[in-house]
């Protein structure tokens, strides 16, 4: 299990990286944390002509607050996010989600940009991006564009990023103060990708729900925003019956696939169970 031969570039700037990437016309791969790409190389399931390693581009690793958003340089490590006070305060859902991503030694290297660009539908960060209605910034030869979560994920491991584009930044809106949140996940072992994960955010005013957000991991080829389920809560409040109804609705909104770890029916069922649990917990910690 040794990687095949490839050319290797470790540019110091984003411009050089784009230039190197452009040179191979789609046959090069960006190397971020390598926690997904390197195993694929070792199995020789990926055979790029070249690797463009972003790890020496210091300017791609940062966490900044700007205009009601928290902006993450694509190369910000999951580990940095885990221990970031800004994230803990402004994006507690992301912090909670980070604990579910593999294990600490994986998070040492894994990046937020890599996790999102990789577009594994069972991954936690894409679900958080979807739940919080975040966006990403992509840079390519033709310049920079901003892509909303809903437009980014296309299917398994496929995004709307062009092969010569680099995801440079991930932007997540600051969560409203007092928002309740939870990420509920079911995996067969600790640290595994989710069989099903549900990210939930609720903002409440007394018994009313002014905002509800629900997104899935593992329930289909892309993370799914459960808008119709959210609407039930926004319409009917946060009582038990509304939660039940939202959870039931959630199961109708997903079209999961089967694999060796779980049947489609089981995944659909878990979507309902975990939606209920995530909402219950989120409501429990919501203030207002």
């Amino acid at each position: 299990m040794k990687p095949p031969k490839f050319e290797y570039h470790a540019p110091k700037s984003l411009e050089e990286a784009l230039e190197a990437l452009g040179r191979y016309g789609g046959d090069a791969k960006v190397l971020a944390g390598g926690q997904s790409l390197m195993p694929l190389l070792n199995f020789r399931l990926a055979r790029p002509t070249a690797l463009v390693d972003l790890n020496r581009i210091g300017s791609l690793a940062y966490i900044r607050e700007h205009n009601g958003q928290i902006r993450f340089g694509a190369m910000t490590r999951q580990r940095t996010i885990e221990f970031s006070p800004v994230v803990a305060q402004r994006l507690p859902l992301l912090k909670e989600a980070t604990h579910w991503v593999g294990h600490l030694p994986i998070r040492t290297r894994g990046t937020i940009g890599g996790s999102i660009a990789h577009a594994d539908p069972s991954a936690e960060y894409p679900a958080v991006l979807a739940a919080l209605e975040g966006e990403v910034v992509a840079r390519g030869a033709r310049g920079e564009r901003v892509i909303r979560a809903g437009d980014l994920f296309q299917t398994y491991l496929t995004t709307s990023l062009a092969p010569d584009e680099i995801l440079t930044e991930v932007r997540l809106p600051v969560m409203p103060a007092g928002a309740g949140y939870a990420l509920e996940e079911f995996a067969r072992r600790h640290g595994d990708f989710a069989i099903i994960g549900i990210a939930a955010v609720v903002v409440r005013e007394g018994p009313r729900c002014t905002m509800a957000r629900l997104a899935t991991a593992g329930a289909g080829p892309v993370p799914v925003r459960l808008r119709a389920a959210e609407q039930i809560l926004e319409r009917e409040g946060l009582g038990e019956a509304a939660i039940e109804a939202a959870a039931r609705r959630a199961t109708e909104l997903v079209t999961p696939d089967a694999d060796i770890h779980a049947s489609a029916d089981y995944r659909r069922h878990l979507t309902g169970v975990l939606t209920k649990r995530a909402l219950t917990r989120a409501i429990g910690v919501a203030r207002g």
Partner: peptide
Amino acid sequence: EHGICGACTIMFNGEAARSCIM
């Protein structure tokens, strides 16, 4: 050699990381 077993874990600049997928 695919990041799961952890036998290859080392400290990389003071933080534990897998050396088989670097």
